[in-house]
Amino acid sequence: MESTSIFFTSFKTTDLWFLAEAAYRTLLISGISISLGTALGLIFGWLLHEGRLISTFILSPFLDIFRSVPLIIQLVLAYNFAPIIGLNIDPFGSGAIVLTIYTTALVANVVRGGIDAVGIPMRRAARSLGMTYWQDMIYVVSPIGIRAVFPAWVGVALGVMKDSALVSVLGYVELLRASQILITRTQEPFLILALAGAFYFALSFPIARFSERLEKRWSQ
């Protein structure tokens, strides 16, 4: 029939560009969220470690909420809540904000673990040499703590990159959303999902390999 050919057309090489462009958007939204979330996570993780009243009674439960509620619910809630309080944020903006907060909550706990891993005797040794609190933090706690929890951080980063697929529910055309569009048009789910998977793999693999090499160098 004539009309069906208008809706369903086969996979073309230009579609690969469409997917590559979508992969770039996945990279963009996860890159921004991971960077900002890590920066904020460092601050909040330090606050969690210092264990003042604010962090035990306010920060910790607050971060727990974002760690515990499924990301897809957070995304839909945030996207629909924004207009109610008069904010006009596009899918990318709401997606990036939610992913950043989510990453912050995860990274904060990783950072707290890293600082805790250094241990009081080591820190006393550093302070006994005349180092200030911040010199101890920068020259002793950071390098030791980072080595201890770097694999956990890489796990968070890779997880957030894959979880960014959920932003598709808001209509942001990243890899998963682009694949769905192509599947609808071509009716070739296997091919396209395999391609989308390959793109996700191509984004994750360098990070995983890089961290592996870094860990190997540190373990010497």
């Binding site: 005797p121 006393r124 040794a125 005349g130 030791i144």
Partner: peptide, 20 residues
């Protein structure tokens, strides 16, 4: 205190070498 501690070297039961 950071200045004063420079006068007071300390060695601990755990040697606490900086592993990195």
């Amino acid at each position: 205190i950071n200045k004063l501690r420079q006068k007071l070297g300390m060695v601990f039961q755990q040697w606490n070498s900086f592993p990195h």
